[in-house]
Amino acid sequence: MGRPALYDLLLKQVPPEKVHFGKRVTIIIDDGERVQAMAEDGSSFEGDILVGADGAYSTVRQQLYKTLLKEKKLPESDKEELPFSCICLVGQTTALDHEEFPILKEPSAQLMGTIGKDNPFSYLLFTTAPSSISWMTMLHLDKVANKSTYKSQEQDREDANLEWGPHAAKAMCDETRRFPLPIGDGTLTMGDMYDRTPQDLISKVMLEEKVFETWYSGRTVLLGDACHKLHPSGGRGSFLPMN
């Protein structure tokens, strides 16, 4: 399902007064009995436990690790930047015609993966309930990188591909749109997926992979990508090599 639909579903289960938007945690105070999270705008929230479920570059984790570093309790591996070896484009098309894309008629979700031949790309398609196709196009780097080293490793590629945002996503789309799809009448390419996806909903992201040693301390605990960022292809089966 699309992420916006999932957000709406989750929000309906939580009383509106319990949800606060536009808050960025900057300080965590743990006195042993209670924990307080202070936001950038001066507001603060107090409770028995603080759960940091705020993604790979978790602010809660960074604040927690600062405290542990001062106390000399942070393992060496937790001081390192998040490594990644893949750059990824992701998107989801609008509703598609079942006659043009017969694979959407299948009663269960279909997952198709392709590894590029003589190029450093692979790409995924998977059908969704709203008659759309979600897709991923992955660029596999020669070396493991992090935010600090990526640009120096990729200096021979176009500058537009080194940045993030709509312009960088378009540059990678242009580079990969000719890739053939294993569906339809044999003439479809990844460009057909890009053209059927709202341009502002195409994202270019890094696929980091790291499991942190420290998942909790005191009354703060980390959840999800904040403590174990895994590559999305970790549980995937085999690919079909294509030109």
Rank of each mutant, 00 (worst) to 15 (best):
M206S: 12
R196T: 12
S203N: 12
P83T: 02
V51I: 15
H167Y: 06
A160C: 00
I28D: 06
F45G: 04
L74I: 14
A226K: 01
K105W: 06
A169W: 10
L141I: 11
Q92H: 01
H228C: 05
T127I: 12
G2L: 13
M138P: 00
Y194L: 05
I202M: 07
P120Y: 08
E209S: 04
V205R: 05
T189R: 09
F84L: 03
E175F: 03
G165Y: 09
T114E: 07
S44K: 09
D54H: 05
K70L: 12
G47N: 13
I115A: 13
M38L: 07
K117D: 14
K105E: 15
C227S: 10
I183T: 11
Y216S: 14
Q62H: 11
K117Q: 15
T93Q: 08
P198H: 08
L222E: 01
A169L: 06
T197M: 07
S152W: 07
A171E: 04
L111S: 07
A168H: 03
R157F: 14
S148A: 14
C227N: 10
T114V: 15
G91H: 08
Q36W: 04
R61L: 03
V35H: 06
D31I: 08
L10M: 14
F121N: 05
E80K: 11
I183P: 11
D225K: 00
L124P: 01
W135K: 04
T94Y: 01
Q13N: 11
P166T: 11
I87P: 01
Q110T: 15
K170A: 12
H140I: 13
F121M: 07
D48P: 00
W164N: 10
K70V: 04
E175A: 10
N161S: 12
E154M: 15
R34W: 06
T197R: 06
T149N: 02
V14R: 03
S58V: 09
L188R: 03
G116M: 03
K151P: 01
V25N: 00
G32Q: 08
P180D: 13
D185W: 03
Q92E: 13
T189C: 10
R157M: 13
E81N: 09
F84V: 05
G237T: 09
P182W: 05
L223V: 15
T149Q: 04
Q153H: 15
K70T: 10
Q13P: 00
V211M: 04
L11A: 09
Q36S: 09
A145Q: 12
P130D: 09
H231Q: 08
F121E: 07
V90R: 15
L96Q: 07
